[in-house]
Design a protein around this nucleic acid. Structure first.
Lengths: 199, 199
DNA sequence: TGGCTAAACGGACCACTGGTCCGTATAGTG
DNA sequence: CACTATACGGACCAGTGGTCCGTTTAGCCA
């Protein structure tokens, strides 16, 4: 992807990504983290930051991708139940659980990433959402879901939205264990849902 | 609530509310509607707008409340299945369906309202969300839900988030009828969910 | 009807934001 | 070592949410 990248450019890119990750994780409200702040924390000029990532949304997407890369790898190449050799049903449950786990661990950051940049950053059209939604749709179909597999996948993902999980954990003081246990039961249960017009 | 309000003040309040409602409904991305725009469209000065509503979030909340008032009234005083004389189960289904219907009809506006103002406008802590969540929690409990009724209520509401519904309708071209039918089946099905540690 | 005052008005103003631009510096190559 | 493509950084810009205060006016009382 980056056949040639000057050494200083590479160094700065990592510095910016690290700084952004840290600042978003520290602040409760993503909107209070400005591009200036990130540039300053990374020790680079603002121009550098924008040249590298285009705009705020671009930066956020990259941070997001970096954070989610390990999970994605475990899903695509890892061992069961997450990896491809598991049964569809157990993979679905494991994936939802893993998403919940990662979001509970990085609540602030994940909220920043879901809310995205200022512009029309439609969550449901972001590459990450689309990718996981497609995978889940396939798995739901494979596990015997009907023609509405895509709909079911949306609902499963709606239950693990970062702000909802954060609210359950921080405001309602539910333990991550409880949340994830409920989620598992919910996921399993929802897989037995039969929607209208299913053949 | 407004024991005394000067006539001009009342007139301006309505003008602002109407203008904001219209502008949010017209624009796809709520962030493109500025407070200046609203003030100009309402024919008032910006100072008036801020004095009346405090800040952007305050204005948005009021628009939201105005839009949802009829639904709230039907839930609190209307006939079954929405009203209080229905059974808990049928009320839950009817409420989720009514929320979906209203959000599908006013997609842009509802997204603006859920996303809220620039600051930390936590959806799950807004008065409107809390109110409907509490009501649903009570109904789930009354319908035989276990100790996790509040959790179930969250999940039901997650399935009717405005941006998700809008995505299903506009991007995936699902008809409102299909979405609502799926939602009804999902709601009914989820009410039979049994979570861990339920007595 | 004509004051009089508290309430409301409106737009200039402020700090700050995301984003652009271009003169300057430097990494890497032959 | 020189030369050039690449990258740097911060001054700069338009526009934002929000504040402030001098001016206007609604509503009351005589």
């Amino acid at each position: 992807m980056t056949g040639k990248e000057r050494a200083d450019a590479a160094r700065n890119r990592r510095a910016i990504l690290d700084a952004a990750d840290r600042l978003f994780a520290e602040s409760a409200d993503p909107h209070t983290v400005s591009m200036n702040d990130i540039a300053a924390a990374a020790g680079v000029g603002k121009g550098t930051l924008f040249r590298r990532f285009g705009d705020r949304t671009g930066l956020i997407r990259q941070v997001y991708a970096a954070r989610l890369a390990p999970l994605r790898d475990r899903i695509e190449n890892g061992p069961p139940p997450l990896g491809p050799s598991g049964t569809p049903r157990e993979r679905i449950v494991a994936i939802i659980d893993a998403i919940a786990a990662i979001k509970l661990e990085n609540a602030h950051l994940m909220i920043a990433l879901e809310e995205g940049g200022t512009p029309a950053h439609r969550l449901h059209e972001s590459a990450d959402y689309v990718a996981v939604h497609e995978l889940l749709t396939d798995l739901v179909t494979a596990s015997g879901g009907g023609v509405h597999a895509g709909w079911v996948a949306h609902v499963l993902l709606a239950a693990v939205r970062a702000d909802l999980l954060q609210h359950m954990a921080s405001v309602e003081k539910r333990s991550p264990a409880e949340i994830r246990a409920n989620l598992q039961a919910f996921t399993t249960h929802t897989l037995s849902l039969r929607l209208p017009d299913d053949t």
